[in-house]
């Protein structure tokens, strides 16, 4: 497991943690039942506040991605296949929204972006 925190980022630290763990779970890098570091241990490793890691884990629990069992620790939750797919789709959608926004800023036309996408689909393996 690998988490990298940037102190220079505009994004709050807890969000950086949530995002990275979420990605690892959704991409299957972290399998169902895999243990996560304890809140305090993660705080120590990342040199951040316990409250920050706690908040990140609480957020992940709310999203149903992890479960915390008292005195045992936190684990990757069992994932519903359909739900998982839906979540992944949502992530793609979010990223595409970014692309659309950026394109508008640059004044790119829909067709131009579509062409770009087509080329990328062929080139990126």
């Amino acid at each position: 497991m690998r988490i990298l925190i940037s102190n220079l980022s505009q994004q709050p630290i807890y969000e950086q943690i949530v995002q990275q763990i979420r990605t690892m779970i959704l991409q299957g890098e972290l399998q169902e039942g895999a243990p996560l570091p304890s809140i305090r241990n993660l705080a120590k490793d990342l040199q951040i506040s316990v409250i920050t890691t706690k908040r990140a884990y609480e957020e992940l629990e709310r999203e149903g991605l992890i479960v915390t069992i008292a005195s045992k620790g936190s684990f990757v939750a069992a994932q519903n296949k359909e739900l998982l797919k839906e979540r992944k789709l949502r992530i793609i959608e979010e990223k595409l929204i970014e692309v659309v926004k950026e394109s508008r800023l640059l004044g790119l036309k829909e067709e131009e972006v579509q062409t770009m996408l087509e080329i990328l689909f062929r080139e990126v393996l």
Binding site: P12, Y14, I48, S49, V50, I51, T52
Partner: peptide
């Protein structure tokens, strides 16, 4: 900035705040 969970801030003998750092 890194380590603290809570911050208590006093100035000229008065409380300013005592809250979670984040």
């Amino acid at each position: 900035d890194k380590i603290a969970d809570y911050i208590t801030f006093i100035n000229r003998g008065n409380m300013v705040f005592s809250r979670p750092k984040d």
